[in-house]
Design a protein around this nucleic acid. Structure first.
Lengths: 356, 356
DNA sequence: TCGCGAAATGTGATCGATCACATAACGGAA
DNA sequence: TTCCGTTATGTGATCGATCACATTTCGCGA
């Protein structure tokens, strides 16, 4: 592999000279403009190849004020869902020959997010994508009244915003429906943080599906998506009469099952547990976890498509991709035994969600 | 929040006019060059603030051929370890006011990686970082003989390359040492893919620590880091005489324990299992997993520091951060019962690793 | 007051593309 | 052949910074 260490990169003028045309004609070829004789075009393209010429994005950006570059704000990108969406968004962008500046937020306070967006703007990004569980991230970016397109991963359309998202609400209803069809009637819920729209939608789905069957939504907790939060909820919550729990994501379900085990309850015999996301570990937990699978690949790709369409001047719009798919494994079953009795570590009033 | 939609961004000339100086003086203030009177400097800075002026990176990059931009190749970024390193690398870069182009590879074949690097070069990145389990990614990038600094996440220094990594080898030895000190003498290993240096180092640590105690390395498998691979190994491997298994990462340990459970073996009573990484779920598995914790935050930050130092003309070097820390939980214990007998699903010759 | 070197500031070229406009070449009808 | 409207190509300005170099101002000793 000849690593020809050019003294300097070839410029458009070098190409022009070699092809025996003016730099402007080269520019026409580069940008696929009309009115170039095929024979000329061929000569130019050959010169480009011979010199291994690549146009300078800096020079181009300077005059066109376009950069073919996108900014991506990613918060909570160590969790499975968001990080998958980021992966596929990024990959799709590369396929479309766009470059992506990424800002992975370790903490998504207002200042950091604002700073990241400002850095993007300074780099002349042509659009911004936000993949963040926390609604505050969306609020901040939306509040900056950018003059460039913005697309957000979000289960619910929001006025003035392009959104892409999976149907969390009906996914959650499917989860609860599954439990009800097994015969459960008291079904608890461990929700995600209340500043997350996905979490809100899953909780709303839980309530509505219960209501649709004349059941009441009682036991309820709020976690931060982490296994530790699931564990705390599982240790502290009031279980009397409860036969099933719907956890807002798989990671919390892991912690939850751990706590139930410690309280002497068997899953699924004493308590059915259902998660959300279908992380790779889900099939191998003890017991293998029933959950709802989301198509993160599709989400990431749709986000990119939507953003590019908007950059090209297309109309605003919201995409709601398919409903998450129910994957039945072994953590749910019919409510076999009596309502469980277990020593309880903490006590939570049934109707008041408790922050963990 | 006055969203003053300027007709156009202010330029260095606007600032110069307002401050009553030449554009060159403004440039001096911007770049902290000497020979500017403090009073003049103050006037310029005030003008900058008043006009909300930000220098154009495109114009700057065009003339300086510098971009204050880094390219990051990330492969396997849905796994916990790499994605954490990516997160902290990125965050540290933003703190240092550098922008990061990220290329998340969904598959890391030679062509994709080469393409990503070429896109980076086109964008005039000043350095490239590689966070990838697969050694092929490193080979490709290193083989391109770039004229810009390159830093790689890698447990072992490699000639002509700046590397940063945790000491996988001694981490693995600590894992095996832990098992031996509990009384185990036949300790199997489920390694990561053989094209991963981390995997090689962990395996080498396993072998060497056994040898140091006069024990032989027998049962051995090769997985791809996924829970599914752990499960396949656990279902198929020969267990006779074995009392402990060291899995090269936590995710495979999850699958492994699942398979052991299905074969009627209890962890840790019949088989001790130890993992590597300490994923957030580890503490909540059944049983909670003994493992080795890596400091990914430190790794990401060190990578950035090393890369920036090289960009500033510093000498090449390799950083080996601390040895991963042993976290003892409940998946390991003394080898209580007799050597286990279990129905076996498959059969593997003891000395030949089997690809899963 | 003068002179002179250092400090402070200004002027014009430059990076490498596109844009706006001018001009040359072509091709068919009068 | 002449003319004229396309089609093809070329010329010079422009984007917004830095760089190289020229010029002015300042401070201080002779």
């Amino acid at each position: 592999m000849a690593a020809d260490e050019n003294p300097r990169q070839a410029t458009i003028f070098d190409v022009a000279r070699l092809a025996g045309v003016s730099h402007q004609t080269v520019s026409r070829v580069l940008n696929d403009l009309p009115n170039v004789r095929p024979s000329t075009k061929a000569r130019v393209e050959e010169a480009i190849k011979k010199l291994r010429y690549v146009p300078s994005p800096a020079a181009r950006a300077l005059v066109t004020r376009r950069s073919r570059t996108i900014g991506l704000i990613a918060a909570g990108a160590t969790e499975y869902g968001p990080s998958s969406a980021v992966l596929y968004f990024n990959s799709a962008a590369r396929d479309a020959r766009w470059s992506v500046f990424t800002a992975n937020m370790v903490d998504s306070d207002q200042g950091s997010i604002r700073g990241a967006v400002e850095a993007f703007l300074r780099q002349n990004v042509e659009g911004i994508a936000v993949i963040a569980a926390q609604e505050v991230a969306v609020d901040v970016v939306a509040g900056m009244e950018l003059s460039i397109p913005l697309v957000v991963l979000r289960a619910v359309p929001r006025h003035g915003l392009d959104t892409v998202g999976a149907d969390q609400y009906h996914g959650a209803r499917a989860a609860v429906q599954h439990l009800i069809s097994l015969g459960h009637s008291r079904i608890g819920h461990l929700a995600g943080p209340s500043d997350s729209v996905d979490a809100q939608e899953r909780e709303r789905g839980w309530r509505d599906e219960l209501a649709a069957h004349g059941l009441v939504a009682t036991t309820h907790g709020i976690g931060d998506w982490s296994p530790a939060a699931g564990y705390r909820f599982g240790s502290e919550c009031e279980l009397t009469g409860l036969t099933a729990i719907f956890a807002a994501n798989d990671q919390m379900a892991v912690g939850l099952m751990h706590a139930l085990r410690e309280r002497g309850l068997a899953v699924p015999q004493d308590m059915s547990v259902i998660g959300f996301d279908d992380i790779p570990e889900a099939a191998h937990l003890a017991p293998p976890l029933t959950t709802l699978r989301q198509d993160f690949q599709r989400l990431g790709q749709d986000m990119l498509t939507t953003l590019l369409a908007r950059i090209d001047g297309g109309p605003a719009g919201s995409v709601l991709t398919a409903v998450p798919q129910l994957i039945v494994r072994s953590s749910t079953t019919v409510p076999g035994r009596e309502a469980p009795t277990a020593r309880r570590v903490g006590d939570v009033p049934a109707s008041t969600p408790r922050h963990l």
